[in-house]
Nucleic acid binder design. Sequence first.
DNA 1: CATGAATGAGAATTCATTCAT
DNA 2: TATGAATGAATTCTCATTCAT
Lengths: 219, 219, 219, 219
Amino acid sequence: MAATETIPGVKRKGVKRKRDAKATRGAILEAARAEFAGRGLGGGRIDAVAERAGCNKAMIYHYFGSKDALFAAVLQHNYTLIRQAEADLDLRSLAPVDAVRAFVEFSFDYVAANPEFIKLINEENLHRAIHIDPATARQMNSPVTSALGDVLKRGAADGSFRGDVDPQDLYISIASICYFPISNRYTLSAIFDLPQGDAMLAARRAQALAVIFGYLRPL
Amino acid sequence: MAATETIPGVKRKGVKRKRDAKATRGAILEAARAEFAGRGLGGGRIDAVAERAGCNKAMIYHYFGSKDALFAAVLQHNYTLIRQAEADLDLRSLAPVDAVRAFVEFSFDYVAANPEFIKLINEENLHRAIHIDPATARQMNSPVTSALGDVLKRGAADGSFRGDVDPQDLYISIASICYFPISNRYTLSAIFDLPQGDAMLAARRAQALAVIFGYLRPL
Amino acid sequence: MAATETIPGVKRKGVKRKRDAKATRGAILEAARAEFAGRGLGGGRIDAVAERAGCNKAMIYHYFGSKDALFAAVLQHNYTLIRQAEADLDLRSLAPVDAVRAFVEFSFDYVAANPEFIKLINEENLHRAIHIDPATARQMNSPVTSALGDVLKRGAADGSFRGDVDPQDLYISIASICYFPISNRYTLSAIFDLPQGDAMLAARRAQALAVIFGYLRPL
Amino acid sequence: MAATETIPGVKRKGVKRKRDAKATRGAILEAARAEFAGRGLGGGRIDAVAERAGCNKAMIYHYFGSKDALFAAVLQHNYTLIRQAEADLDLRSLAPVDAVRAFVEFSFDYVAANPEFIKLINEENLHRAIHIDPATARQMNSPVTSALGDVLKRGAADGSFRGDVDPQDLYISIASICYFPISNRYTLSAIFDLPQGDAMLAARRAQALAVIFGYLRPL
DNA sequence: CATGAATGAGAATTCATTCAT
DNA sequence: TATGAATGAATTCTCATTCAT
């Protein structure tokens, strides 16, 4: 039906797709991440996800069942990615100061490179985290928290850090100071005359390090 | 059902409303804040706003013109409220340490009491702040930033604070450390075994003060 | 948009409808009866109902809430109609034989004139009568059953009828013998070389009377 | 879940099936009967048929070609079954009263045991019997009709029955009085406070016999 | 013969918006 | 100012059907 288009690499209607379940599923996850991060769960469109993924709407329902389940899968997938990257930092093998610097820089750089991640998380909070299984989330998060605990203990012992810091508190503070300025960059730029682009990021990154290291200084 | 409800203050279908422009407009703003904060801009429903406001959908269009314009009005209104409350702190008349404590506590308590505010702002960031007029926003924000500058200068002079802190940076850091743990409380609670309710808030508030005052300590 | 059609009496897109809630609701009920009777609940289309009713799909949801609720409303409405017509027979004022003849003829003629009624009921049985409220149904049906009981008692007393007939049983038997040949006319015509149209109806009607009066003869 | 189920006879995803054409075809027919009887033609789902049959959707198209053709095959199959069972009654070898009793009881018991049969027929009538080939249907039905004619003639001759009964009329009346109370049992139970389950069936069966034998009594 | 990935045309339902009253 | 009936364009989700393997 209609003339057979032949522009190479462009998805053509009526041309069947790769027939590769794993690839299709992955393409949908990627597409959904972009769509939901850009428009929210309520604003994101399944149609748009299908188009971005280069597949059919029905495939999304075939693989994920519903819009909400797709969102949950996207969340789970993206949490897995960052947790894996955090684990790769191997904080326990670094000197305390280096470990904290590495973790703060990583946290900042990760969301700077993946602003969609924090948008998804903000969106999930709008929905009271109903798409997250706490058991799984806690299990995934415990390695990095315990590594931070180790770093804090070593830092207190060698005089690098004050001794009264809880690793969970530190984690939340680092997340706050790294994520908020990025997720809220648009309103912050509306309010303040901030530098744009990389210069803004550099300034926020420096400030994040300054706040965290300032706070951790021995009393 | 229906027919003869007479519970005062409860809207009945088919019964004409107050005919009070100001009150209706205000009720719509309140209702829209709740709706948009709870479901996002994309997920919020005009129908629901009308129902919450106890008025007719057409009224919303009469007063605000469109869904986006309504969202913009809600944002503007809520920014005005917090800016006014910030101004009322009168930081310039407080000792530097007291002023910072007052501002951090106010910032935290405000979003703890008005979690919808930060949800609206997160939502607006999802939409790249297209509903905000930067000129207005900057003008509204400048008094508090300059007051913080004054506090920092006085604190550096009297030895309370380190001398290298920029007031904009401080503002953003305080916002980060106060807003993020509240706006993201649901995912944080999924990840960590945090206390619930007021105990959680108290812990986050104490941590916010600890981080900011730790950071501001003289070098 | 598009040229303004002006063919008189033809529903034109873009031309608003009558703005008469009662009429619209009624038109939807009529349209839905035809659609569901013709295609079943599963096969009936909301789109088609809207088109038949000359209104917008959204109106259907506005007035009835869902496809199932619409079907339930159609059922309820059509039960009400036949029950009212039955009541109008005023069986108690007729001689026993006349009363039974009137009731059988009425029952047959009603479904002959309203074959959609029995189709709706068959469809409802497919769904195990989940759209019917038994309390309402029983209350609506009791007048005719008790009238039949009165007729049977009088008929037994005056020697017109056998004395061992239960009014409920009679009602069900009359319904069976009147409704089945009409609701199943298509398969019966495929199986037997029956007359067509009115001749078929006349034959079935005569047979219904013959069976019921044959059965009721005194023992 | 999945991975290593070994319950025999239960289908596992990803495990190839029997490769037995006849069995697969039969399983599909059974599954389709249940599905169409339960939800109608419009409401029945090919997906659901495949799942019930423990096979792949493509198999259905392989064997039957389309949904409508599958429905037609189900009808044809189920007509064949009842016609065969009717033939097995061997009415010609029974005394007239015994033959009629046998036929009424058989008709009632068959639909009581196979309520899906009458649902399929009702559904087919909704579609104006377009899935039935009249020639085949008549040929299948003629033996029982002619056997009934023989029974009626013998009954009239020996004084058991009235002499003015047409075998087609009798067949249709018996079908009406036996099938209707079963196919419409749900709405009848909503309308009347009928006994449930087997007690209801026993009552309807007795009434069917009473009506038919009452009707057939000599004038 | 058998599988399940893929498709495209619907189908039910929702929703922002308009308008006669 | 206020109402609620009406609209049309989406939007989520379903389903019969096809096809490469």
